[in-house]
Design a protein around this nucleic acid. Structure first.
Lengths: 351, 351
DNA sequence: GTGAAAGCGCTAACAG
DNA sequence: CTGTTAGCGCTTTCAC
């Protein structure tokens, strides 16, 4: 009798290899892998040891062929966040491919089609959703998306709630840190441009600014706080108001880079040098921040990393859901970073 | 005898369904699907008809389990092109997922790690590569990437050559169209800011500008042509030189949006209104173009669409390669679009 | 608690 | 040119 010829072995260990090594049947190994029901403690340990030793990992193709539904995650994005988008995609793709999760991305432009986009994704069979900024802050979108019982994570935005898993940097702390940095430079009159009132992060950033001022014993002057909407144009208007003040600020901290860039433009139009006559700082570290001159000192959110986390958390939720368990909604904070570039300096007439 | 029970049918048609309907064996169907070698014309037609009727599409899991290596495409990107990146990703992902091609993305920061990045991708078993701008224009990167015999497509950049499949808009025609647009507005003195001499597109854009001028019978004034490097800073310097000219231009056409934005900033610093005192146009339609005020009239490249095409072309190449055939290197041009926004107007003292 | 048998949908190898 | 057989790696069903 001739030796059976391996037709096409990938070389990597199979469930049978593990079974043989552990001295059990493939079936039992399968049970162990899939959070199995009834397996003796000792058996489970033996099998896990074998798995480790062989560096075994299940073949996803075989698995899905045999009937296990692969995990699918939907990612909803909207144009306004285009600056984030590439980082979000790079991060989530990277993780998704590593843990064999399918990622389906769909564009969603409220108020037009957020319902359709969501339904489209659900029809495609996704088991959970990632909502990117600024979608996370639109209540109507959140409502639609959390209608079913699939888990949803809001990435960089959104109000932590019972319906949503959220992943954010600590906007309060970040704004606090930046303001403190400015105070440390010697600034006393620091203008602040608020972000869109529609996004939860705006309020948190404003509070951080206030807190740092309070801590330094600098009274908050309401004239130094101008409303913006995260757009360049709104930044232009807000910065103009700030510069027209009798006692104009020596520094402007804008709630995002677009508005900070606008503040720089306003300063230039008025013949002011940045940073020598005016310090300007932003938030987000988008491409904008390092494209203009001077490059902006700003706060960087580790978006790619946060996207990776989002995929992980969602996957855990989906697995838990499948197993009939239920995890509490987590609200994770990621570490921000203050990126010092060329747009800040001590105020002119500091000693 | 009892009817065999379907254990877990996904419901969708299988290769056997098709075979039954067409009156052949599954194997023959398989041959037809996979560019099969020896199948009678009539058989092939019958099977294709059955496929269409059943709306059959092969199950990728079963396929890969049965030993067909799935197609993997590597996508190399570099930070400078961050503006493109999201569009590139969205487009290529979309197409890749639709035709069941795996996409592996890797970051590559020349001159540091382009060799490692490429090798990393090749180790991961990719069968072809997509090179995004500005990587396509770095000869050393192109050299490394085309070292093996895997096909490579250069997306938006690169010199059409025998080693590279390229996909570009017709930079010459696009610049020609924009210049003609400016002339149509009544401008006679049109400044031009050249892009980086390192990128092939820069030269093509300059030629388009020249051609439109020539056609209109406007003599080319070399003082109106300034060198830039695609960066905001270089745009600042170039625009400054242009504005200092005794006979300053009434319009500036910059080879990308960053430099156009810089030109706007320079105009503002000099107390000039855009577009009433100076028209400024860009190229690329990056986020920058519509973030600043006034929003830039610019040329839009359909990057997402081009990325989709890239995936398609590469897949065809890989398939041909597997079948032992070899396709000629194609150099595709995509249709650009002139996006009219608020930064252009007729010159001030036109009738 | 554990295992044996069967089959998911497809394709490589080998006939005819 | 076409069909038969076997098996990819896994899980389900059902038996012990």
């Amino acid at each position: 009798m001739s030796i059976k010829q391996q037709r096409r072995g990938t070389g990597s260990a199979t469930i049978s290899d593990v079974a043989r090594l552990a001295g059990f049947s493939p079936m039992t190994v399968s049970r162990v892998i899939n959070g199995g029901g009834n397996v003796k403690e000792s058996t489970r340990d033996a099998i896990n040891a074998a798995i480790k030793e062989l560096n075994y990992s299940p073949n996803p193709a075989a698995r899905s062929l045999a009937g296990v539904e692969p995990i699918r995650i939907g990612l909803l994005y909207s144009n306004p966040s285009a600056a984030y988008l590439s980082e979000v995609l790079v991060g989530s793709l990277d993780r998704a491919s590593r843990i064999d999760v399918q990622l389906v991305v769909a564009r969603c432009e409220p108020p037009e089609n957020y319902r359709e986009a969501t339904e489209h994704l659900l029809e495609r069979g996704v088991h959970g959703l990632i909502l990117t900024s600024p979608l996370c802050d639109l209540q109507e979108v959140v409502d639609v998306v959390t209608e079913g019982d699939q888990p949803v994570v809001a990435l960089a935005g959104g109000k932590p709630s019972d319906d949503l898993i959220t992943i954010n940097v600590d906007d309060f702390e970040a704004a606090y840190a930046m303001t403190k940095h400015l105070i440390g430079l010697g600034h006393q009159r620091i203008g602040f441009i608020i972000g869109s009132p529609l996004q939860a992060a705006s309020g948190r950033r404003l509070e951080g600014y206030r807190a740092a001022l309070a801590e330094a014993g600098i009274p908050v002057d309401d004239a130094l706080i101008q409303q913006g909407h995260f757009t360049y144009r709104s930044g232009l208007a807000a910065a103009d108001k700030l510069m027209e003040l009798a006692a104009a600020p020596t520094a402007i901290f804008a709630s995002n880079d677009d508005m900070a860039a606008a503040a720089v433009a306003v300063a230039h139009r008025r013949g002011l040098d940045v940073p020598n006559d005016l310090t300007v700082c932003g938030f987000d570290d988008t491409a904008f921040a390092s494209s203009i001159w001077p490059e902006l000192t700003t706060i960087r959110q580790p978006i790619a990393e946060m996207a990776r986390t989002a995929v992980d958390m969602l996957t855990d939720e989906i697995l838990a859901h499948r197993a009939g368990k239920s995890l509490p909604r987590e609200h994770r904070l990621a570490a921000f970073e203050l990126i010092k570039r060329q747009s800040d300096a001590p105020p002119k007439n500091s000693k």
